[in-house]
Design a protein around this nucleic acid. Structure first.
Lengths: 119, 119
DNA sequence: CGTCTATGTTGACCGATGTCGATGTATGCA
DNA sequence: TGCATACATCGACATCGGTCAACATAGACG
């Protein structure tokens, strides 16, 4: 496996659906970390803001103005989302641009799809 | 609207995708609550165990034996999942049976689908 | 009614986490 | 070199949340 998606998909275990079979403890631990990253209103809005931004990316200065929290807090939340595998970041000049990872979203989407929703 | 899905879909606002447009604060708050319910390894395994159980339902006595935590803790986690709209419960005699809500899973799955995966 | 089993509730403890102010680091520019 | 901007990191604080033991409730059965 060359591509690194979510932390839960790193190694041998990679559940494809929550309804197919019970999660192992390791799978559950990894997955819970990803959901934990989405389990905060500010992070959820941040993620949605980045994912829906024109060009598919946004710099921190574009994001911070939409929230009441301070810049260090925004920076903290972005780090959580990045470490969960949901966002990528890239520095260009003075600014750092964040981008959503479609593979991560797709994997989560499939995990939550009831039965054979793709069929 | 007669059917009540996730708390986030109760009223006027009901986002269909995280990438289509930025979430409102209200949408983010509701959605974060649902993700918070899934952001715990024990709850995630509980949910998966119920969803993948034969017959689509399981009683607490079937579940508790798979975990190291005490029965009150299991009961607490089941309550969180139920209040998040992810599980339904029904008493039959001495036992209480839990069942996954496919509509809730489908809604979450669509929210995380990158671009127009369902189209 | 009494008792046993299955499950939910309460209250307390304690580690995890969101938030802030202060400070550090990197880049651009004069 | 010096300063300004953009962003990250650190340390502290307050709140949240997972867990347990103890207790409460509800049905089955005698």
């Amino acid at each position: 496996m060359s591509k690194k998606l979510l932390p839960l998909a790193d190694g041998e275990d990679c559940a494809t659906s929550l309804v197919a079979e019970p999660l192992s403890e390791a799978e559950a631990a990894g997955l819970a970390g990803v959901f934990k990253a989405l389990a905060d209103p500010v992070r959820l809005r941040l993620f949605s803001l980045v994912a829906s931004h024109a060009g598919g990316e946004a710099c921190v200065c574009d994001l911070a103005s939409s929230f009441d929290v301070t810049q260090p807090t925004i920076s903290h939340h972005l780090k959580v989302l990045r470490e969960a595998g949901l966002l990528d970041s890239e520095r260009r000049g003075t600014w750092i641009y964040y981008r959503a990872r479609p593979e991560a979203m797709a994997q989560l989407s499939l995990l939550l799809a009831p039965q054979g929703a793709a069929a």
